[in-house]
Design a protein around this nucleic acid. Structure first.
Length: 278
DNA sequence: CTTGTGTCCTGTAGGC
DNA sequence: TGCCTACAGGACACAA
């Protein structure tokens, strides 16, 4: 679930609660939540470190620890992080990090698809190779129209599926790819390599803008409330969605009589306005 | 190398 | 109410 804006929001919320705290004890309730190293080693090695900084790369949240170690967390579809009191155990808690201030960082993940990793900063293991191959941060200075044009040139795949490719646009997921394509006026089914230079430029700009907006509004909390901030508050970007989750409803662009449609692209639900998006 | 499909795992919503 | 199926915002392995 959480995409770049949601993970960035979580990072900002957790940073003041975690930096300077030491991880005193680690408990893993489900071993398959640990991506690296083996769960028992993870439990032993993660304890005793102090959090120095929180970073993010794509959808990965990185708790930088002392002694050159990183605690890397990926929330996948339904992961949730929360700082709780010593006697509070959130539902679906899979791992728990007791902190030196008496509280604990709780990692809940109903679907057990999310993962935690403990790695040496200088030596990211093969299990995190996907992170090494990641492309430019779409909100960063390196994400230029030129960069996107180079990445899309000659590609026959749909532009939607390439927006979801973390090697090109890291941090982008299903919500913000649909929203960016709507804002850029481009149908998600278009072959990426067939976009005009003007369209690519527009797409690069709108992708950046929609992600910045998502961050500004603290992410998207849909009706199921699978994503909420660490403090339990809801994001507010859902109020500003133009197509995602709006299939069958009228397009929000003033004067447009179109109805938002839903199709499948690469097994992912995809929404667009057939009038606004060419 | 590129592209599309299936799978991981669990919970929930909707149909009957 | 109960059972069954389809589906879910991600990432990766794998086959063609």
């Amino acid at each position: 679930m959480p995409e770049l804006p949601e993970v960035e929001t979580i990072r900002r919320e957790l940073e003041p609660l975690l930096v300077g705290r030491r991880i005193d004890r680690v408990a893993v309730h489900r071993h398959d939540i640990v991506g690296f190293p083996d769960a028992d080693v993870f439990v032993r090695m993660a304890a005793g470190h102090t959090v120095t900084r929180l970073a993010r790369r794509g959808k990965y949240l990185i708790l930088e620890l002392d002694r050159e170690r990183d605690l890397v967390i990926h929330l996948r579809l339904s992961g949730h992080l929360e700082v709780v009191g010593p006697n509070v155990t959130p539902r679906y808690e899979r791992a728990r990090f007791a902190l030196s201030d008496g509280r604990a960082l709780s990692f809940a993940e109903p679907r057990v698809l999310g993962k935690v990793y403990l790695v040496m900063r200088s030596h990211y293991p093969a299990v995190l190779a996907g992170m090494q191959g990641m492309g430019q941060e779409p909100t960063g200075a390196g994400f230029t129209p030129r960069y996107l044009a180079d990445a899309l040139r000659g590609r026959r795949a749909s532009v939607k599926s390439l927006l979801l490719d973390q090697r090109i646009c890291c941090g982008v997921g299903n919500i913000y790819s649909d929203e960016a394509l709507f804002r850029a006026g481009i149908r998600p089914t278009r072959r990426a390599g067939r976009l005009s230079p003007v369209e690519v430029r527009r797409l690069a700009r709108e992708l950046r803008r929609v992600l910045d907006d998502g961050i500004r509004w603290c992410g998207t909390t849909m009706a199921d409330a699978r994503y909420v901030l660490p403090n339990g508050a809801r994001g507010r970007f859902q109020e500003r969605l133009r197509v995602f989750g709006r299939e069958g409803r009228h397009c929000r662009r003033p004067g447009c009589s179109g109805t938002v449609r839903r199709v499948k692209i690469g097994n992912r639900g995809t929404r667009f306005c057939p009038v606004c998006q060419k």
